[in-house]
Design a protein around this nucleic acid. Structure first.
Lengths: 166, 166
DNA sequence: GTATTTTGCTTTGAATGTTGAAGTATCACC
DNA sequence: GGTGATACTTCAACATTCAAAGCAAAATAC
């Protein structure tokens, strides 16, 4: 009705999928080059980004269960890339911190996006940069309609109570 | 140097990460709601999109090895969602086809992006839609600098010969 | 026209990722 | 101090993933 160019939905979806795919594939290359698995690299990245997050924070941010985080951190500890540090304020919590070696790995495997994106972005004209930021933020807002973003992805069952067909 | 707003790189990277994260988390919900794993849903989606792809095509598109595709298809066959069909032209090849039941599952678990995106997109003004498409295509192009997109992600070694930094 | 190589797929064995459930320790509240 | 919630770990089970080896069919060589 109010839409004059229905093709544009398809075009933008195709572009989005290309973005997602390129990012994912590239992230795997980076992880392998750094000698860790993609999941482990994601842990390292989050640990580097948020300063010494707790296991809970990691689980929420990654959208996996705490059990998974425990398993991933175990492996990274075994490799000497992170260490666990019991929080002083709340001794139930464990802060995950990068070791020097972990920082090295992180530096060698820069963010999947950053690597490719930053250079090309810098070459754009000022107005183009502004438009890009505006558009991306708009898309992000469109995708984060509700707060599923912050939820631990699978509140484990709650979402499914009425889902299974019939 | 030629850049007047360095913040914009960060802003656009943050927006991009939000897009990636929202999509990934949402895809998991959809898969679970459909009663399959995320990887299996991805297979179904590609089978639905490209008509009766070969195992090789699936592997390339997903960026995983053929062995992995075999394993995933095994599970989907066991669930009755796809079936294997030896190609008539080249009997080494196997075409993967959706069963009726597989089509049903696919319909219930629409594309992770589509679900959220299409509705919001349709509400935008004409010029906004045009700008969004243009911006997304530009970003996709920026990320697909070389043809890593089409490569089987890890040709297992070949790509890495010159990768390590410097 | 057979022999060799290449190609497409599967099998096997092993590592990782993932989860729910159960268990342990700590905190918060009263 | 006792009760319940919270943070994390352990455990058992299954999914994903790959390299290497194997097999069958096609392509190429000779």
């Amino acid at each position: 009705m109010t839409q004059k160019h229905p093709d544009r939905v398809d075009e933008s979806l195709i572009a989005l999928r290309r973005i997602l795919r390129a990012t994912e594939l590239y992230a795997r290359d980076l992880a392998q080059a750094a000698g860790v698995t993609p999941a482990q690299l994601r842990v390292l990245q989050i640990v580097g980004e948020k300063k010494d997050p707790t296991a809970k924070t990691l689980a929420t941010q990654m959208g996996v269960s705490q059990a998974t985080v425990t398993s991933l951190v175990d492996k990274l500890v075994a490799r000497g890339l992170v260490s666990r540090l019991t929080s002083a304020q709340d001794r139930r919590q464990t802060n995950i911190t990068l070791t020097n070696q972990g920082e090295d790995v992180l530096e060698e495997a820069p963010d999947a996006l950053q690597q490719r994106y930053v250079r090309a972005f810098a070459d754009l004209a000022d107005w183009e940069q502004a438009q890009l930021v505006s558009s991306l933020e708009r898309v992000a807002a469109m995708l984060n309609v509700d707060n599923l973003d912050a939820a631990p992805v699978l509140a484990t069952g709650e979402l499914r109570t009425t889902k299974k067909n019939d």
